[in-house]
Design a protein around this nucleic acid. Structure first.
Lengths: 213, 213
DNA sequence: TAGATTGTTAATCGATTAACAATC
DNA sequence: TAGATTGTTAATCGATTAACAATC
């Protein structure tokens, strides 16, 4: 039942392949070789072929890869051939920004609910999605089939909320709270830590100025 | 002049060390061993010691690490001992969310300006920061010493804007646009690709359901 | 068929972990 | 001093790159 384990490094690269293939598709390119794609993407052709061969042979010797076919296949690998229902917990600026981000919908991530504890936000609509109070969550989760919860709330509430969501059947969490969630291992967590990203930037800025002093 | 090159993997871990040390500091912990920290952070003690020793010996045999000292030192390595002036290009939902995110200010990232092309946004204030039109950028950049530009605009404008900013002296870009920027190598780029993060999540969801079918 | 390009094995490189002498 | 724990070297593991036979 268990498939061959694919390394995290490979999976992190797949969305980027998918993006480049999507752009090639839009530009009407029919086929592409690993060599040409490697030049565009600034990675080695060898890596592209290795990565793709984790999932089977999508190419053809002497020809390369059919752009449309490869795009579709990588989409399937990434699970983009189906829709996901998502809720957002924390309707602050970031939560509302995510709810407004139409691009996710295009990829099949449908925002079904937006929750907060602040009574002032109750009933406010963001792109047609009404903000509900978190105490309505149990009933909401019973009525709707939700696969993903995005956590855009202050870190001090994140752990408790994550536990609550997992208890109520959520199995995938997109975590924007600046804390590590410790959840059962069958729960999938994807972290987006913006401040850590910013610190990598400042590291490089200050390293650069140290080196050029 | 050139310091020993530190691997990206190490740098990615530094902000997490910084966070844990900050929490220990708040809780009043004075010293910690690599062994204890490794348990909390779920990494090996060996990795912690290796990582830290890239930057010199912060610990003491038989004692461990002084939490406050280590926290300060990692802060310095990350460049958090100074302030950075930042502008945000694109005052849509995400741009405004970033501008509102007070936590960055606490770490020394000061939002000095917010720019957009949409005349409807002109003069609107976000947390006291007035939204300006992008044609005011050249004058603004001349008057202010800006180190970081966050790009929260649609990808089709991102490349052009990035080139423009680099021409006007910006040397660090925090890129939220879903595209790769090709800039001179002395320009520091840190990408945050939210849709790619979401795709890693959906990959894991659909892998999980494949494996448990 | 000849040329191109994949799929795949082998070689290299880099990162992580283990081990332990140094030393507080 | 004895025990604890670092700093650092060596061993292992994994990921990337190179090479090339297979084949379209």
């Amino acid at each position: 039942m268990e498939e061959k384990e694919i390394s995290r490094a490979v999976i992190k690269r797949l969305p980027r392949y998918y993006r480049y293939l999507g752009e090639l598709l839009e530009s009407g390119t029919e086929r592409i070789s690993s060599g040409e794609l490697s030049e565009r993407m600034q990675v080695t052709a060898s890596q592209i072929r290795q990565d793709l061969n984790n999932f089977g042979g999508f190419g053809q010797q002497g020809y390369g890869y059919n752009v449309k076919h490869l795009h579709t296949e990588i989409g399937k690998i990434l699970g983009l051939d189906q829709d996901y229902n998502m809720i957002i917990i924390g309707a602050g600026n970031l939560g509302q920004a995510l709810a407004n981000y139409v691009k996710f919908e295009k990829n099949g991530f449908l925002v079904k609910g937006l929750f907060d504890v602040n009574p002032k936000l109750k009933g406010v609509a963001v792109r047609g999605i009404v903000i509900r109070m978190t105490d309505e969550l149990p009933a909401f989760l019973q009525e709707h089939d939700i696969q993903i919860a995005a956590l855009t709330l202050p870190k001090q509430y994140a752990k408790e909320m994550a536990d609550f969501l997992v208890d109520h059947g959520i199995r995938a969490i997109w975590n924007f709270a600046h804390t590590d969630l410790h959840l059962p291992e069958d729960v999938i967590i994807e972290n987006v830590h913006l401040s850590e990203s910013l610190m990598q930037l400042s590291y490089n800025i200050s390293r650069y100025s140290r080196e050029h002093k």
